[in-house]
């Protein structure tokens, strides 16, 4: 138990620090990389709860796919961070005061003891498959919410396309139909007797 706690606090500390660095570093690429670190440590914490499938999914989907895309986009964009930070010092006093008040309130409340002995994570044997457990409920008990989550993703696609897709006059795009219909005479001009001209 003692060793497990040490590991937990180790990962938890890295998680908190990297999450803080995501919003404090100046370089956006570094921020994205810190987010990757945060995902990795979260996955480690989930592993400790024996949620192997979720931990792997987090690494594969978020780190492997989402964050790579994210990094790619960040590198493509030319973001002037100083503009984004313009109002920072102006709003800092208000923000910091609220944050401190909330932290004091929460710690005052929580230092009284966070008794949660009623529900402790259940330990399973080696033969227990986390993936199978999720598979058993995903399309049965969680069918309704699973479908709603799918609809939310569809909505996100529709919203993103409707907000960004626009046909501009200066955009060059291909029309496959015209490409197929193209004839030799449209593309090639045969010039005869080049030598004789000179």
């Amino acid at each position: 138990m003692g060793f497990e706690k040490i590991i937990f606090y180790f990962f938890a500390a890295i998680l908190v620090v990297s999450a803080l660095r995501v919003i404090t570093v100046r370089n956006t690429v570094h921020a994205a990389l810190f987010l990757v670190l945060a995902f990795f440590t979260t996955a480690a914490l989930w592993l400790m709860l024996e949620a192997e499938f979720l931990a792997m999914t987090l690494v594969l989907v978020y780190v492997g796919a989402v964050m790579v895309l994210f990094l790619f986009v960040v590198m493509m964009l030319d973001i002037d961070v100083s503009v984004l930070r313009a109002g920072f010092t102006r709003y800092l006093p208000v923000g910091a005061t609220v944050a401190v008040v909330v932290i004091i309130e929460m710690s005052y409340f929580l230092l009284g003891g966070f008794d949660n002995s009623k529900f402790t994570p259940v330990k399973h044997g080696v033969e227990y498959s986390n993936t199978r457990a999720i598979g058993n409920v995903l399309y049965t008990d969680y069918l309704f919410v699973f479908e709603i989550a799918a609809v939310i993703l569809l909505l996100a696609i529709v919203a993103a396309i409707s907000l960004t897709l626009r046909k501009r006059k200066d955009t060059r795009y291909q029309t496959p139909g015209n490409q197929v219909k193209v004839r030799k005479s449209d593309r090639i001009r045969i010039v005869k007797d080049m030598d004789t001209e000179s």
């Binding site: 969680y142 309704f144 919410v145 709603i148 989550a149 609809v151 939310i152 909505l155 996100a156 529709v158 919203a159 409707s162 907000l163 626009r166």
Partner: peptide, 30 residues
């Protein structure tokens, strides 16, 4: 979904479905 929710998950997902479409609609006039 929100109105017919009987589980915290359903409430949250219904709320997100509503909110996401609202965000997109507000920005609709690009």
């Amino acid at each position: 979904v929100m109105i017919s929710a009987h589980n915290f998950l359903t409430i949250y997902l219904g709320l997100e479905l509503l909110s996401l479409s609202m965000y997109a609609l507000v920005a609709y006039d690009r």
